[in-house]
């Protein structure tokens, strides 16, 4: 099969790969780089479990060709913690019970991080907008929102 050289910057590492051109960023992250924390839940851009950061913004990795994101900085869920120390968003999700089955969690955390990096004190409605592309079946979204609001310092509606 026809393969092309692609170099990707993932979690701060330069990865030089030979991949077929029809491979998505999601497939490369999971299959070639073995970073399976990025999930595959629908493959049509609707569920948000494949969310990664592209130059700091939350995007769907299932809707991007790997070959198209050369030269950009990609961060996956594995790139967040500092050794054994969790990233503040990860810690907040743990402390406030914003994780249950965990399948939406990596994407949810990355969407929250992208928001908080840009806007450290968002209101609840801004938070709900920012994670509206991340489906969750377990939490009713409540504890996820509470986790993020704990970092934003803004009040939560009841």
């Amino acid at each position: 099969m026809n393969k092309i050289p692609v170099s990707l910057n993932v979690n701060g590492r330069e990865e030089n790969l030979e991949i077929p051109p029809h491979k998505t960023l999601l497939e490369v992250i999971r299959d070639d780089l073995n970073l399976t924390g990025t999930k595959c839940g629908c493959e049509d851009g609707t569920c948000g479990t494949c969310t990664v950061l592209l130059d700091g913004a939350a995007v769907r990795s299932c809707l991007l060709l790997a070959a198209e994101v050369q030269g950009h900085e990609i961060v996956t869920i594995e790139g967040l913690a500092d050794g054994e120390r969790l990233h503040p968003v990860q810690q907040a999700i743990v402390n406030h019970g914003g994780v249950q089955c965990g399948f939406c969690t990596p994407g949810m955390i990355l969407s929250a991080k992208a928001l908080l990096d840009k806007q450290p004190s968002p209101t609840e409605s801004v938070v709900r907008q920012a994670i509206s592309g991340n489906l969750c079946r377990c939490t009713g979204y409540t504890k996820i929102v509470e986790s993020i609001m704990a970092l934003s310092g803004q009040p939560v509606s009841s």
Binding site: L35, T36, G37, T38, K39, C40, T76, I77, E78, L80, A81, L86, Q90, I93, V94, N95, G97, V99, C101, G102, F103, T105, P106, I109
Partner: peptide
């Protein structure tokens, strides 16, 4: 916090796929 939480927030938890 549930004892199973940390691996699920770091991406370490392995699902079947």
């Amino acid at each position: 916090p549930r004892t199973d939480s940390v691996p699920r927030v770091t991406g370490e938890a392995k699902y079947s796929a």
